[in-house]
Design a protein around this nucleic acid. Sequence first.
DNA 1: TTTGCCGGGCG
DNA 2: CGCCCGGCAAA
Length: 475
Amino acid sequence: MSTGKRLAKRSIIGTRVCAPGEDGIFYSGVIQSVKTPNDQNDFEINMDTVYSVRFDFASKKCPSIKREFYGSEIIGPGFQALSNFRLSPGQKVFLTYNGREISGHIVHHNTLVDEVTVSINPPGHEGVIELKKRLEEIRLLESRKSARLMDQDTDFARLADMAADRKRASSTTIEVPIPGSRKRRTSNSHDDFKEDQMNECTAALVLMSLSCSPNSSLNGSHWMDQPLSPSASFSDCASWRSGTPSPPLSESGNSGIWGSVGTDEGIVLDEDYYDEHPRKRKMNRTLFQCTWPGCMIITTTCDSIEAHVRNAHLGPRREKSISDNGYDEDTDFDDHEEEFYYTEIELEEAYSPPTLSHRDMARPPHEDPEYQKSLLNSSLPLNRRYASAGPINIPKNSNTNVPWSFSATNAPTSAASPVKHLKLSFSAPTSKLPSSPTRRIRGETKKCRKVYGMEHRELWCTQCKWKKACSRFGD
DNA sequence: TTTGCCGGGCG
DNA sequence: CGCCCGGCAAA
């Protein structure tokens, strides 16, 4: 046994990590191979060990930009902790903003006071916001969305019928969460949404397109193989996309398998399908939405959104910012700037309350200072976002059934009801509203415990300490 | 099995 | 109240 940290997995190969580029900025990638000088077993991370990292961004143009690093240079599970580094301005990071993971860039990292200034550009928000965070609050890699659904049930009914049925009917709805994190894999991101950052128009359209256009794929792959009932649709594909155990290395997280797309106009559907595993998994279908001010174009692939951003907004590629790195060879990989201008939307099958009402019942917002705080940060002008929906229009009288009021403008219900998700129920006449459970459904993200671990219980929010609903990451 | 947290108990 | 925890339910 050496002093290295032990990895959770048997092999490090495939682990998602971040390693420094020549510009001092960390880029995400995947461990490709390991060279261990003295024969140690590869379960141990040894600082003399050299790891070959394939960077994600290489995957597009140049399928293999790899470089080798010592373990001491790498940040990631089993490697160095982020806290051992000082982040350079321009470093791309992920953080939880209004309950949702979004990406941002380091403006300044003051190691003395553990204060990281991060600029973010939340979808739906014009311009850039600067946040001050502690290092522990930010991540270099996207987090993974947990399989758990968020606390969603829908009920207005519940208002009337609080104590009735405890069982939750299975949902026949599809949730469209907001874009927030880009290239999110599947996330454990604390996604609960204090508000809606997504343009519901967009969401609705996307949903409809998804459910109505079996031919959307260009390359013969179907994003859904089976003729599902419209509402059941998203449930089958899997999305691992994460640094999870031995990922299928065929695609490195963000561009990979996805075919590419056609146009920049509005929604472009094509395939990313995640193969189904022997066992069923929940599908989170990911779409990419341009965040360029005034542009809300959505595509289904990372490639295509980047192409869109580049073509429509950034102009021709040229050398810039991220320096002259010539990783390994003279690959002319691009500067990645596109990444700054789009975000990811996940569609997942879930139950989503249009408001936070149920939560409010569990714990009135006014009783929850942390929630209040976050509310302050989160008031986004929904209608504005409608206005900026660009090419996307929501068909007014489609057969899409929207049983809930889903726009903030329709829901004058006080500050406590920011719309978190757009929830649409596809026509199935038999679809029923979830019954009114008394117990909160498990959120996807209640997690001081998860985030800080048992060993840092002191960092948990009070509620978590008391085994109550988390007030930090909860909805 | 793990995790989130409700419901309820105790001081 | 603040705090703790048994135990349920979802995953």
